[in-house]
Nucleic acid binder design. Structure first.
Lengths: 183, 183
DNA sequence: TATTTAGGTCAGCCATATTGACATATTTTG
DNA sequence: CAAAATATGTCAATATGGCTGACCTAAATA
């Protein structure tokens, strides 16, 4: 078993592809992404099931919690699903008191979305599970592993959407920090 | 924009959590995993759609191609789905000539699965798309990025399944290399 | 010979997504 | 102000990919 990691580090890239031939696929990263992501999203599933929710609910709650007051349109833009798909899930979470809507102050057509305390608690619990996995993983690796993972994942995102994603994360962090200090 | 990356590298981890308080979630990696994985699996979708296939077909074809002669039971074990779910997809891919079954030599109850040349061509095309994204990403990062990504992803997998996954990848690489040299 | 194993299949259900057609309220524009 | 555009919601039908439960055959094994 110990042999597995050592031998593979050398063999993984047989050689710069012999001119002309299509390069050998990155089987390792392709498959590791599959398995890692499956486990990563699997953690919250048990908890969600107890509430009668699924992954769609998780995603909605997550981003509403991260972006208090987000518009329906922005949420659709992040999730890249249709209004109808969102509608089904959102209606449930509102009627069960995990999310509330407030009329926009400037634009009264908007229904700004907020997690309720109950909603925030669930969102934090789910994020906690995923964070535990991440923390466990990073602890096994050297320092700089967080930054390396972050860089890799950013680079894996479509160039067209990359800046939006980074801006979005930075903005949510800012908001959260401000809210924290206000306590 | 340039500011985004520089500032964030410092601010991301405000401090070792003040004793007692639950640590702040890893929002960045949680969200980057979501966006990165979405784009990663999105690449093959267009191609698959042209063949009337979906992601389920992709997964089946991928692992059959990677593990020529795999048993139905092993495939179920990797995919963690039910026989019935696999059946529907597999039946289609067999009837359309992307996969064939051969009776096991030792155990004639087994139906060993193989990708046909047509199936292999499709599998390689899909793997090529995902590899292109990975290669693009790694090219932007320093050397060692492949290994760092690999380590991170391995560490993100459930400890219980990790060795199986690594063995599985190593075995498939071996087989492939052998088959290559035989040409 | 009896039991277990490998695989297949039918039927019904659920979750999540889609397209397309409309409806309502509000804001913006000519 | 009237007309057009925008933000949101909703109904209906459909596709995909999962699931459980029940039951079947053929082959291996105890």
């Amino acid at each position: 078993m110990a042999d597995l990691n050592i031998a593979s580090a050398r063999d993984r890239h047989p050689a710069p592809d012999p001119a002309g031939q299509p390069p050998e696929p990155s089987w390792d990263l392709i498959e590791l992404l599959f398995f890692a992501y499956r486990d990563f999203v699997g953690d919250p599933d048990e908890v969600l099931a107890k509430f009668g929710f699924g992954r769609a609910h998780h995603r909605v709650l997550h981003f509403v919690n991260r972006h208090p007051g987000i518009t329906v349109a922005s949420l659709l833009d992040i999730l890249k699903i249709t209004k109808q798909s969102l509608g089904r899930v959102l209606k449930q979470m509102i009627s069960e008191g995990y999310i509330v809507q407030k009329e926009g102050a400037n634009d009264r057509r908007q229904r700004l979305l907020y997690a309720t305390p109950k909603g925030e608690a669930l969102a934090m619990k789910l994020a906690g599970l995923q964070t535990a996995r991440i923390t466990r993983a990073l602890r096994e690796l050297g320092p700089g592993a967080h930054e390396a993972a972050r860089r890799f994942l950013v680079a894996m995102i479509d160039a067209s959407g990359r800046d939006d994603v980074l801006r979005q994360i930075a903005r949510a962090d800012q908001l959260r920090k401000a809210a924290h200090q206000a306590r």
